[in-house]
C-alpha cells in the first residue's frame, strides 16, 4: 500500500476499531457474566473477569428450560416464516408490479396502510383467529401469522419495478404465461431482494418474543426467546444462567451471519435497514 494512502486511512481505521469494540463489548460482557457466580454477577463495582470460572451455568440452562425442543421450534418457526414470506410476498409483489387488474393501486394502498399500524394492535385479533382455528399452543400458530408481510411485499414490488421489462416481453412472445414468467424470469432476477427479505425475516422471527409467548403455553411449544424470558424470576433472577442461555440462543444466528456474511451485508446495504 502506498504510504500516502496508509496515512489517509489510519484515522478511519481507528474510528472503525473503536466502533467494533463498542459493538462487541456487550457480547463479551454477556459471556463473562455467564461464567460468574450469582453473587459476583450483581456485585458493585463489578468485576471484569470472573473470580472462578463457573461453567455449570450452561448445564443449568438445560435443566431450566427444554432447550433442545425450543431450539427446534425456533428453527422451524424461522424457516417456515421465511419460506412463506419469500413465496407469498414475491407473488403479491409481482402482481402489484406487473399485472394490470382493476383496483390494483387502491388495493396496494390498503396493503401499505398495514405498515402504519403498530403490530401490538394485531395481538388480540390474531390470537382470536388462532383460537377459532383451534391452533393455540401449536407450531402452526407460530408460523402461519408470520408468513404474510406488507413490508416484504412493498420491498419486492419496488425491486420488480426496477427490473427492465424486455426479458418478460421476450418470454411473453415465446408464449410463457404470467406464472411461468414470475417463476423462471423474475424470481431469479430478484435474488438480491429475496436475500435481503430473507435475512430480515430470519432476524425478526428469531427474536420475536411477544407472539410466541402469548399464543403458546407449554414450555415444549415455546421458542427460545420466550423460554429465556421465563428465566427471569419476580424477585430473584439468576443472571449468569440467563446470560448463558441467551448466549446459547444467539450462537446459531452468529454462525449464520459468519457463513453468509457477504450476503447479509449486501442485504443490509440494499434495504438500508437491519431490521
Amino acid at each position: 500500500m502506498p504510504e500516502r494512502v496508509a496515512r489517509r486511512t489510519w484515522p478511519v481505521h481507528a474510528v472503525l476499531v473503536v466502533g467494533a469494540l463498542v459493538m462487541v463489548a456487550p457480547l463479551v460482557w454477556e459471556f463473562l457474566t455467564s461464567v460468574k457466580s450469582f453473587g459476583e454477577s450483581v456485585r458493585v463495582p463489578p468485576t471484569i473477569l470472573p473470580g472462578t470460572w463457573d461453567w455449570s451455568n450452561y448445564t443449568k440452562v438445560f435443566h431450566s428450560i427444554p432447550f433442545g425442543e425450543q431450539l427446534l421450534n425456533t428453527v422451524l418457526m424461522t424457516a417456515g416464516r421465511t419460506a412463506g414470506q419469500l413465496l407469498l410476498c414475491s407473488m403479491a409483489a409481482y402482481a402489484f408490479a406487473r399485472l394490470a387488474f382493476p383496483g390494483r393501486d387502491v388495493i396496494f394502498m390498503l396493503f401499505l396502510s398495514v405498515l402504519m399500524v403498530p403490530s401490538q394492535l394485531f395481538l388480540i385479533p390474531q390470537y382470536q383467529i388462532m383460537q377459532e382455528l383451534g391452533w393455540l399452543n401449536s407450531l402452526q400458530a407460530l408460523i402461519v401469522p408470520g408468513v404474510f408481510s406488507a413490508f416484504g411485499t412493498f420491498l419486492l414490488r419496488q425491486f420488480f419495478l426496477s427490473l427492465p421489462k424486455d426479458l418478460e416481453e421476450a418470454a411473453g412472445l415465446d408464449g410463457a404465461n404470467p406464472l411461468r414468467i414470475y417463476w423462471h424470469i423474475m424470481l431469479p432476477l430478484a435474488r438480491p431482494g429475496l436475500v435481503a427479505l430473507g435475512i430480515l425475516t430470519v432476524l425478526w422471527s428469531w427474536n420475536d418474543l411477544m407472539w410466541p409467548l402469548v399464543v403458546n403455553n407449554d414450555p415444549e411449544q415455546m421458542t427460545l426467546s420466550a423460554g429465556l424470558a421465563t428465566l427471569k424470576g419476580e424477585h430473584f433472577t439468576d443472571y449468569p444462567v440467563l446470560m448463558a442461555g441467551s448466549l446459547l440462543a444467539t450462537l446459531p444466528v452468529i454462525v449464520v451471519f459468519i457463513v453468509m456474511q457477504r450476503r447479509v451485508l449486501e442485504g443490509i446495504a440494499f434495504t438500508g435497514s437491519k431490521g
Binding site: 383460537q131 403455553n217 424470558a229 427471569k232
Partner: peptide, 20 residues
C-alpha cells in the same frame, strides 16, 4: 405454566379476551 411477571399480564389479558 410459567410466564415471567413482566409478560404474564399481557398474556393473561389476551387470553381472557379470547375466552381461553
Amino acid at each position: 405454566q410459567l410466564t415471567a411477571n413482566k409478560e404474564y399480564w399481557t398474556k393473561l389479558q389476551t387470553a381472557v379476551t379470547g375466552g381461553s
